[in-house]
Design a protein around this nucleic acid. Structure first.
Length: 320
DNA sequence: CTCATCTGGGTGTCATTCAT
DNA sequence: ATGAATGACACCCAGATGAG
């Protein structure tokens, strides 16, 4: 019953190799990977990515559609066919979830710092409360289009499972899409929006509410772990019995079982005009000093030349 | 032509300030 | 005192304008 809903699709490595070229480096505690698009994001690339994206969204699709009383794959003209998830998401929300799916995809496809074997049992999109409500309303009133809020909490969670089936490590972090990664946009995202210094009119300073802030204050065992555990418990309690049990122990308030965390920062979008080939957004030689946690950090930068068109075409094409 | 800056848009929660 | 307006914050972003 649930086997189609869990995320089982392998990452499309052949498509990635055709689509992107990579500059990769990894030293103790810090990995950096820059990926640049080398061929147009055409139907071939899209079709290569589509199964993974459908797999990533399938749990939330099932969950949201059931909540709204829609069938899983409504026929054209059927009630609610205008509100299919994630096809119905407005452009900004699409770009947000695209980055989150790419986070999972890259985690499973690439060799990250520490050379762990990451798995993403299921994505956490069902916790995007606002999307659930949006689909409920939109399926009943096609005119009720609006923006959809991003989900609170972690973008996604990947885990490392040892031979005994116990979870030893998580990966979690932030994924950001921007149309053009010019330097000021990058600073905005990483360091926070610029605000005026009080009492010193004219002086602008970043407010410190960017990605570094979010990463540094993130819990070692984030709430996404709880969300992951809940979904596993509901969808595949037998298959993941050991994982679920170990997640329980790891999350205990008192005497939690030990676990480690890798932080992930994924930046995806278009290039600034002044950026040279192979030139990364963040420094790759050493771990950026803004990262203050004693945790491994993996940075993934994906520079696309026609990402906007690809995302829209891809999300239009899901579950044709 | 590129980039920094400012403005804008949508959808909320929560705290503070203001008017009745 | 109570309820209503306002502002700060959260989160996802895009576009216009002007400087160099």
């Amino acid at each position: 019953m649930y086997r189609d809903i869990m995320h089982k699709q392998a990452p499309p490595k052949a498509t990635l190799n055709k689509w992107l070229t990579s500059y990769s480096s990894s030293k103790k505690g810090y990995g950096h990977i820059l990926l640049e698009q080398i061929v147009p994001g055409d139907a071939t690339i899209r079709e290569g990515l589509r199964p993974y994206f459908e797999s990533a969204h399938s749990d939330a699709r099932e969950y949201f559609h059931a909540y709204a009383g829609m069938s899983l794959h409504p026929d054209a003209g059927a009630p609610g066919c205008n509100a299919k998830y994630p096809n119905c998401l407005p452009p900004k929300a699409r770009r947000g979830v695209f980055g989150e799916v790419m986070s999972g995809l890259m985690t499973e496809a690439l060799d990250f710092v520490g050379n762990h074997e990451w798995i993403v049992p299921v994505f956490l999109f069902r916790n995007q409360e606002d999307a659930r409500q949006y689909i409920y309303v939109l399926s009943r009133d096609p005119a009720r289009k609006r923006e959809v809020l991003g989900r609170k909490g972690d973008d996604f969670i990947g885990i490392v499972v040892n031979d005994d089936g116990a979870v030893t490590r998580f990966i979690a972090g932030e994924a950001k899409w921007r149309k053009k990664w010019i330097p000021s946009v990058l600073d905005d995202v990483m360091l926070g929006t610029k605000i005026e210094v009080p009492k010193k009119s004219g002086n602008l300073v970043h407010d410190g509410k960017g990605v570094w802030f979010e990463i540094n204050r993130a819990l070692d065992v984030p709430i996404g772990v709880k969300q992951l555990q809940d979904i596993l418990q509901e969808l595949a309690p037998d298959e993941y019995a050991n994982v679920i049990l170990s997640l329980d122990k790891i999350q205990q308030l008192q005497n939690p079982a030990p676990s480690e965390r890798t932080d992930l920062i994924l930046l995806v979008g278009g290039s600034a005009a002044g950026r040279g080939e192979g030139e990364p957004l963040l420094e790759w030689e050493t771990k950026p000093s803004q990262h203050q946690k004693n945790r491994d950090l993996q940075v993934v930068e994906i520079i696309l030349s026609d990402g906007d068109a690809l995302i829209d075409a891809l999300y239009d094409s899901l579950w044709p």
